[in-house]
Amino acid sequence: MKQIKFLILISILCLLFCCKNDIKDETKTIEANISSTSISKCPKHILDQKENNLNISILLDLSDRIEKTKVRQKDSAYLSSLSKSFVEHIKHKKLILLEDRMQLFFNPEPSDEKINEIAEKLEAVFTKETSKTKITETLSLYTNTPSELYDLAKHDAESSGGYPGSDIWRFFKDNIKDYSIDECHRNILVILTDGYMFYDKTIMNEKNRTSYLTPKSLRKLQLNKANWKDEMEKKDLGFIQANSGLHDLEVLVIGITSHNDENPYTLDVIEAYWAKWFDEMGVKKYKIKKADISSSIEKVITNFVLKT
């Protein structure tokens, strides 16, 4: 009889202990959910539409590449195409769900304040309070303003003794998460560059990794044979990793150009450098395209931005 009572007592204690643990687990889950909700700055209806809320950042390489008139013309056409895709996306959204933006960046910041003023004009933010005239205004600005921006940048370089270069590596290290990634949006970074990377204040070497890639440094690598990819892997050539955890970022690089006509693999090597860099930083999705006629690149931009 005593044994039976003892067994009943043990059973009751076990039951109480299990219930207590279950309550603790439920409390932790509730607390975690409350914490997650309180940390997020997005209203639920915006967060639920995250993949449909565009946050497009444009990083312009204002190095000596823009000396060429064709480069400036192509860049202007690419920017116009980008604005068309952005506006097309806007037109297909319900007014109450508008939470989309597009902005322009340089690194380093140009010394001519007029260039920065143009960049500010090109910032397009669409919310449910935005007037419909903003659509026409955005298309007009991105079609007509870039040529003025490039003319100013060229004049700035001529008056200051040369182009400052473009510190793309440092932008990824110091600015990418603050400037181009937002938890409420689908984050897209579009980089207009020739694929070479150089800034005189950010020259670093770590074994066979660098923070730069120039026509001269690329020629020294002698990756001019069919086994260039094996050589890259064997020597661990590439850019120094600038960041990590970029799983909420998509990157479209446009304008890759070869400055070494003697090496038929130059474009492939440049693309491999960028791809390896993005992979190591955890970029969610990326596409790297060489410079091409505007109509061809417009299709690339449309497919990337609108997922068509």
Rank of each mutant, 00 (worst) to 15 (best):
M1N: 13
I4T: 10
K5M: 12
I10D: 02
I10N: 09
S11H: 05
L13W: 11
L13Q: 12
C14T: 06
L15A: 15
F17K: 11
N21C: 06
D25C: 05
E26K: 06
T29W: 06
I30S: 08
E31Q: 09
N33E: 15
S36N: 14
S36K: 14
T37Y: 11
S38Q: 03
I39W: 14
S40E: 14
P43R: 15
H45E: 15
Q49V: 05
K50H: 09
E51R: 08
N55A: 08
I58W: 09
I58P: 01
L59I: 11
R65D: 13
R65W: 12
I66W: 00
E67D: 15
T69G: 07
K70N: 15
K70V: 12
V71F: 09
Q73T: 05
Q73P: 00
D75M: 14
S76Y: 08
A77N: 03
A77L: 03
A77V: 00
S80P: 01
S80L: 02
S83F: 00
S83W: 02
F86I: 11
F86R: 01
V87S: 10
V87K: 07
R101N: 10
M102K: 00
M102C: 04
Q103I: 01
Q103C: 10
N107Y: 02
E109L: 15
D112S: 13
K114M: 07
I115Y: 02
N116S: 15
E117S: 11
I118V: 11
I118R: 03
A119T: 08
E120N: 01
A124T: 13
F126V: 06
T127V: 14
T127E: 09
E129G: 10
S131T: 11
K134R: 14
E137S: 15
T138A: 13
S140W: 07
Y142Q: 07
T143A: 09
N144A: 12
T145W: 10
T145I: 09
E148Q: 06
D151C: 00
D151S: 13
L152Q: 04
L152S: 06
E158C: 03
S159G: 04
S159D: 13
G161K: 02
P164A: 12
P164Y: 05
P164Q: 14
S166Y: 03
S166R: 02
F171H: 09
K177N: 10
D178A: 01
D182A: 12
D182C: 06
R186F: 08
L189A: 01
L189D: 04
I191L: 08
T193V: 04
D194L: 08
F198N: 04
N208R: 08
Y212V: 06
P215F: 04
S217H: 02
W228F: 15
W228L: 10
D236W: 03
F239S: 12
I240R: 00
Q241D: 14
H247M: 11
L249I: 09
L249Y: 03
I254Y: 03
I256F: 03
I256M: 00
I256H: 01
T257F: 08
S258E: 02
N260C: 02
D261N: 13
Y265S: 04
Y265I: 06
D268I: 06
E271M: 13
W274K: 01
K276V: 02
K276H: 05
V283H: 01
K284S: 04
K285C: 01
K287W: 05
I288N: 08
D292N: 08
I293S: 08
S294G: 07
S294P: 09
S295T: 15
S296C: 09
I297E: 02
K307G: 00
